[in-house]
Design a protein around this nucleic acid. Sequence first.
DNA 1: ATGAAAGCGCTAACAA
DNA 2: TTGTTAGCGCTTTCAT
Lengths: 349, 349
Amino acid sequence: MQKQVTIHDIAKLVNASAATVSRVLSNSSYPVSQELSEKIKLAAKQLNYTPNMLGRQLKTRNSMTIGVIIPSISNPFYADIVLGIEEVARKYDHQVFLCNSHQNPQLETEYLQNLLEKQVKGLIISSISNQQDLLGDYLAKGMRVISIDQAIDIPDIYQIGFDYRKGGYIACKHLIDNGHRKIAFLSAPLDRPSRRGVFQGYQEALQEAGIEPESSWLQIHQFVKGERLGSAVEFTNGRMLARNIIHMADRPTAIITCNDLTAIGAMNELMTYGVKVPDEISVIGFDNIEISQMVTPLLTTIDHPKYEMGQMACSMLMDVLQGIPVHVKEQILQPRLIDRSSVKKRVDF
Amino acid sequence: MQKQVTIHDIAKLVNASAATVSRVLSNSSYPVSQELSEKIKLAAKQLNYTPNMLGRQLKTRNSMTIGVIIPSISNPFYADIVLGIEEVARKYDHQVFLCNSHQNPQLETEYLQNLLEKQVKGLIISSISNQQDLLGDYLAKGMRVISIDQAIDIPDIYQIGFDYRKGGYIACKHLIDNGHRKIAFLSAPLDRPSRRGVFQGYQEALQEAGIEPESSWLQIHQFVKGERLGSAVEFTNGRMLARNIIHMADRPTAIITCNDLTAIGAMNELMTYGVKVPDEISVIGFDNIEISQMVTPLLTTIDHPKYEMGQMACSMLMDVLQGIPVHVKEQILQPRLIDRSSVKKRVDF
DNA sequence: ATGAAAGCGCTAACAA
DNA sequence: TTGTTAGCGCTTTCAT
């Protein structure tokens, strides 16, 4: 392992000062004569010079790094968001520290602390636990944060949101428009604003159509505390909840779920028990993850622009970090129905 | 935004020197009197001190950060690996820079360069393009690298491998043991050692059973250059290749695929065309990603210990970085048959 | 247009 | 046990 080459080595080689070398190698706008500049660049190449960003960062107080805290990358929903974030981060020459919180407050705290110590000035969080005060603390220390998909009640936080309520409404309306009246709602616990939003939209659509929901239509699984995360949990949840539906005397003809994985689990269970989808029961998912196009029947669902949200969040963060005035502190993206094959169509259309 | 608190501020407050403060706050083994130590810790808390790791890193030449380069986090296979890596990295107080290369050599180079500049000393790569010389260069600059799942012909690189050949063999053998003789192989291009390994195992099992493969059994899709990555590509690939099988005069009774997504696509296409799985055609996948338990029928597949590989790779890296002698430069993990429902069982068992 | 010098926050060799 | 001092590699006033 060879010793690191520094700007001083280059300076010595071309008989210039470190300052000048720094100026040309860091693309400073400071004037340096053409000739010397060329010589320095050449020398840098010859010596196989690699700048040490730690030095620069310490001096400029800019770590060129952002942090991203999400529940788990194993959930394709978040994977997409991260991909969007990374794409624009790269354009701005920033790296991203990935932090999978597994919904564990202690881990979240740990990560937050690490990011702070590493002088990360920008953070994107998606569904963080109750860390309001902690975040407030970090904001005070100069960290800029963008929240995706979760309204946080701190004035300094920028937000990229999604209209879950409307999504739930559109989903339910789609079912109603196709002749369904008995519509069940299957979900993981309504402990997150997003799920509550979907539920609300569902209720509103029912109400608008003059439908009085039966309490049995509402199937919410109470997760066991400490349960491991991952796609499989949601899927299994969908199966379990669907089973409750199957054996009902007066069973619903349609199902709305809080996400695609739950929907796919439900479809699976229905089919296992010989209940045909969509002929006997229609299913509509939520999020439009890639897998929804890989099941039979193709899952009708509500599109959630995950990748775009990631991109937007990161652009916003970059603007904020650069001190560019960001006028809208909150952007709400819109849902869109993806009409595929898991919902039975009204014949008289 | 308040000014940063440094060890000097603390030193001043307790009438000690910065050196002493550093010693207690960095958990150095250097002796400091109990009393003073307490006072310093208290002061740190009072001032709400956050250490600036850039300073430490610059001094100690240890960035406490590792890089991970994978094709794409949107592939659940890699997501699992990353999760495993992150878990042990966290235990060692390291952060991970996530780099999705999208199989783009230019991006890979860019990331490699950035990591180097940020003084990242440890790198884990999974399926990187032809960057042998570039990597050699980086090794020379002191970077330690662990390669997952891809043999790289550079002596200084540690490897965590997987016995793909044996996996292919086990899969094919399983089919043969259940009475199949006409077995197709569906795959993405055989440009990666992993896929070639599976293919080889498949061939060996056939040969061992005295089966002469028809050329039509071999269905390899040639990806179009620049095609976007993502689960959907593999899935679609599986569909397309399965279609070729369906219409054959003397068609195979079983299919082996290079990964689960391809298998799921194939099953999908078969079912769409009314071909029953496993009754008419059996399908066996590879990798055992979570989705394989979410399809109907449940996919029989070969387990690939992704998460564990991530963990092992990271432990190994941590050992290497700490100068702990690592005796085995190469570890090969073993495949395991996951016997589910997509393969028709021989009745006379 | 170039250079000298100071310093970002921290650690570590050396001195006391 | 504690402090002094000298950097780590870089940028950036301030002189020249």
